[in-house]
Design a protein around this nucleic acid. Sequence first.
RNA 1: GGUCUGGUAGCUCAGCUGGAUAGAGCAACAGCCUUCUAAGCUGUGGGUCCCGGGUUCGAAUCCCGGCCGGAUCACCA
Length: 592
Amino acid sequence: MTLETILTQQVQTAVKELYGLECTDKMVQLQKTRPEFEGQITLVVFPFVKAARKAPADVANEIGAKLVGDIVAKYNAVQGFLNLSIADSFWTKQLETIAAAENYGQLPDRNQLMMVEYSSPNTNKPLHLGHVRNNLLGWSIAKIQEANGWKVVKTNIVNDRGIHICKSMLAWLKYGNGETPESSGKKGDHLIGDYYVRFDKEYRKQIAELTATGMDEETAKKEAPLMKEAQAMLLKWEQGDKEVRDLWAKMNSWVYAGFDETYRQMGVGFDKIYYESNTYLEGKSEVEKGLAAGQFYRREDGSVWADLTKDGLDEKLLLRSDGTSVYMTQDIGTAKLRYQDYPIDKMVYVVGNEQEYHFKVLSILLDRLGFPFGKELVHFSYGMVELPNGKMKSREGTVVDADDLMEQMIADAREISKDKVNTLPDITKEEADEIARKVGLGALKYFILKVDPRKNMLFNPEESIDFNGNTGPFIQYTYARIQSVLRKAAGSEPEQSRPIGGSLNPKELALIQRLADFPAVVRQAGDDFSPAVICNYAYALACDFNSFYHDYSILNEADTDKRNLRLVLSRCVAKVIQKAMDMLGIEVPERM
RNA sequence: GGUCUGGUAGCUCAGCUGGAUAGAGCAACAGCCUUCUAAGCUGUGGGUCCCGGGUUCGAAUCCCGGCCGGAUCACCA
């Protein structure tokens, strides 16, 4: 039972006895005591003032007097706030429980399966900072839900077909001279991205030429020969033309090799990958079935639509008049295949907030088609990453490339750590490189994940990401410090059987209280789908520890009971930091 | 225009299911390493919580109305 539940019951009893008031759990408002007052937990007594017909401070004192016992050691009342000091023995018992826990912060199994879709790249360009946010959020959400007791399947739907990839293919055929990743030394996804940009450049040239002859821009965009060729190529692809399919397969394989490298460096992965080229036909047949069942209707031109006006939305196109599928069609097909493959209880789509309308529609359509998770699907909608001069645009080259950024962060970490890591005893080049990698990526990941996912965030390439203050490296450093102490304590470690006891200083007490919060924080992060909640907690925990570490010695403490307690406490803090950081996809170094 | 969403210190962000004098980090300034890792610790300065109403013991937080920004409303994805 948690401290909050125990206190809530005690308060309810006290209020009943004192004022004859039956109060709900909600009326018992407990919060952390602000640091300027004595105590750890504060009860807000205003909800009882009316029934008591007394001044708030009197009510607080009366309740406080009733509460004193094994758990509440003493109290003080400040106006309507009753500050409770919890007995040291309660906290030391908490610490024992935490220290003994197998996997502290792991919530009970709920025997339900959640599928988390994230990343979902197009295969015509390399990943950029926007994708980085998506990938980090997706991975972290999966980890957080696992900690919340879900069985999680991470999935990726690769948008591997469509006009976008045809553009890259066409430009490569026309201007590529057979360039390959091997011949050029370029990463496959970057190579394809270059041709996507090249297509756009030549295409614009053609539009300019056409408008110069007096054609209006709208027509010029449709009439430009390159666009017509790309569309012809897409048609050939759909018809299964061998040459086009072979080229498509070859170029996609280059891209996948590139993506794999980026994912590996980022530290993310998937349990199951779906490809749009394999799911869009399934979507079409689902739509045909829905049409036959009267769920949808066909217009005179042959296009198929869903009428969503009853749901307060529009009419939505599902199949074009030429019979080809759209994004929505493909998503329906993917959903069907997934449901065949897994017993999904909850489906989560990690996709940017620009697609909120799409998922509102998808939810209704899946529900109509009889998918149990349709109605309840979660669109985990996150905000855009903006640059100081606005949004990133691939075609305009105003993107922050994912590979470049990670490489830069690791280089920065190596530079910053030069004077520090190199002074560690017996440091090898390999370990120094590993530290730079963990710290550089830790800084990047924390920087992105600490922001509330729903909000847009700003990234200024001119300003380097910090390694001091509220950052990933700060938390990693705290972990490394603890490991250092624990290494030095080796041989004189406390026996596990030895009970922890004695009085606590304020910093120890604050740390134990913080550790005790962890499960509730994990739950909240899960309920809110928010890695930022974990970030805030990990930072607060690291702050608490550093403050404690500064004020008190662990190894040089003469009192063996105290030394013992501090060692156990330090080990617990390290454990929780590691678990929290793991939920963020951030590795912690043993030394730094 | 309809819908959704955001506006908190010079900058980047917490806090938002109503609670005490609104918090961090960065940047600026001043201290702390013969002592367990100074990527640390301590302190100073810095605020019209966009504006105006309302709800109440109490509003950055909830409601209404404005102002400003972003997204979306495609036979794009």
